[in-house]
Simulated assay, not measured.
Amino acid sequence: MTQPRTVLVVGGGAAGNAVTVLLRRAGLGVDLVEAKDDWNATAGSGITLQGNALRVLRELGVWEQVEASGFGFGSVGITAPDGTVLHAQDDLRTGGDDLPATVGMQRPRLQRILIDAVRASGATVRLGTTAEILDNDADGVTVRLGDGTEARYDLVIAADGVGSATRAAIGIADRPEPTGMAIWRIAAPRPAALTRTDLAYGGPAYIAGYCPTSETTLYAYVVEANRDRASIPPESYADEMRHLASAYGGFWPEITAHITDPAEVNYTWFDRMLVEGAWHRGRVVLIGDAAHCCPPTLAQGAALSLEDAWVLSRMLTGSDAWDDALFQAYYERRIARVRPVVEASVQIGQWQLDGVRDADVPGLMGRTMTMLRELP
């Protein structure tokens, strides 16, 4: 009997978890290593999942759990800083008409659902473990794990995020670059009447928005020009975010009242990165944030990462030859879809930084989201 091919997945975020489940379903032997002991199970406040992300989650077999745990909605509102609704627009159903346009979720809840799916798949999981590439050739990859053991795999999938050590180890020099913006985020109770995402442009922040994440929760965010992180002590995070948020009306006073604990506030710069030319070296291939990242102005970061996992798993399980031609075809298939999203996400932010008042933001969003309705 032929031994099944073996794959090492480095990184247990959305992309790594998804590709692990899909490859295990196809009968491959998969080990997953994650550097963090807690498997990122408590990190983050909320996440916006548009239809093309939900489509992949359905392929993973977790859609019912996602639907039950999150909050689905189908429109987005544009408000003035005082909360006056200026315009409400139906969201495009990028995952097809049988899925919601958007589901908001608590990010730790999504991670728990994916963790449970990985466990159920039978993959071997090692937490608090890193992987060092020792040898990478046309036939496979030899790695040394964090516990000192060495192993040989037919393929290594680098899903270790925007700061990917694996990407650097195989000689890909691309690094994330700041776009000039930063975001403050927090989870909070959801007012009963808040049933969709609303975005306010103007005021002391470039954007003030929120997204319902369950029947009782939401996550809220304000976007400003990035500042030197060293100038903002973590103990001041709640004060900083509350100061910005307090200028907004509508649901914001209820939300702002819960911005009290600095440990619950997250501050992150917006970055952009798009690895060009190829997303592999030998038998090591990049997916997700290790290959591309962009500001969340289109809420497509997780969706693109999940799509990477779905496309790569289908290509791997549909081919006998795991070679440069296959991995280059994967890159070309994905870059045609990822590049417009990265560029549009960056452009929307740049228009705001430059103070462009007549920018066609709705048109750019509409064209990009229409493209995403097609299967990846």
Score class of each variant (00 low, 15 high):
residue 147 D to G: 05
residue 147 D to N: 13
residue 147 D to P: 07
residue 148 G to S: 11
residue 148 G to C: 06
residue 148 G to K: 02
residue 148 G to I: 05
residue 148 G to T: 13
residue 148 G to D: 08
residue 149 T to D: 15
residue 149 T to W: 06
residue 150 E to I: 04
residue 150 E to G: 11
residue 150 E to L: 03
residue 150 E to P: 07
residue 150 E to A: 14
residue 151 A to K: 12
residue 151 A to T: 12
residue 151 A to H: 13
residue 152 R to T: 13
residue 152 R to A: 11
residue 152 R to F: 15
residue 152 R to I: 06
residue 153 Y to H: 10
residue 153 Y to S: 10
residue 153 Y to G: 07
residue 153 Y to I: 08
residue 153 Y to W: 13
residue 154 D to Y: 02
residue 154 D to L: 02
residue 155 L to S: 12
residue 155 L to C: 14
residue 155 L to D: 10
residue 156 V to Y: 06
residue 156 V to I: 08
residue 156 V to A: 02
residue 157 I to S: 09
residue 157 I to G: 03
residue 157 I to T: 00
residue 157 I to E: 10
residue 158 A to C: 08
residue 158 A to Q: 07
residue 158 A to G: 02
residue 158 A to V: 08
residue 158 A to F: 10
residue 158 A to M: 07
residue 159 A to D: 07
residue 159 A to C: 11
residue 159 A to S: 12
residue 159 A to M: 03
residue 160 D to R: 03
residue 160 D to H: 09
residue 161 G to K: 09
residue 161 G to S: 06
residue 161 G to L: 12
residue 161 G to E: 07
residue 161 G to T: 09
residue 161 G to P: 05
residue 162 V to W: 08
residue 162 V to H: 14
residue 162 V to F: 12
residue 163 G to W: 15
residue 163 G to T: 05
residue 163 G to R: 15
residue 164 S to C: 06
residue 164 S to V: 09
residue 165 A to R: 14
residue 165 A to F: 11
residue 165 A to I: 09
residue 166 T to P: 01
residue 166 T to V: 14
residue 167 R to V: 08
residue 167 R to T: 07
residue 168 A to C: 12
residue 168 A to R: 13
residue 168 A to E: 12
residue 169 A to T: 06
residue 170 I to R: 04
residue 170 I to M: 08
residue 170 I to D: 05
residue 171 G to K: 07
residue 171 G to E: 04
residue 171 G to V: 03
residue 171 G to S: 05
residue 172 I to H: 05
residue 172 I to Y: 02
residue 172 I to E: 00
residue 173 A to H: 14
residue 173 A to Q: 11
residue 173 A to I: 09
residue 174 D to W: 00
residue 176 P to W: 01
residue 176 P to D: 04
residue 176 P to L: 01
residue 177 E to F: 05
residue 177 E to Y: 01
residue 177 E to T: 15
residue 178 P to F: 05
residue 178 P to E: 12
residue 178 P to G: 11
residue 179 T to M: 03
residue 179 T to V: 13
residue 179 T to G: 02
residue 179 T to R: 04
residue 180 G to V: 04
residue 180 G to Q: 03
residue 180 G to I: 02
residue 180 G to F: 04
residue 181 M to R: 15
residue 182 A to K: 10
residue 182 A to S: 13
residue 182 A to E: 02
residue 182 A to H: 00
residue 182 A to Q: 09
residue 183 I to Q: 11
residue 183 I to R: 03
residue 183 I to M: 13
residue 184 W to Y: 13
residue 184 W to S: 05
residue 184 W to F: 07
residue 184 W to D: 01
residue 185 R to A: 01
residue 185 R to H: 12
residue 185 R to Q: 13
residue 185 R to G: 00
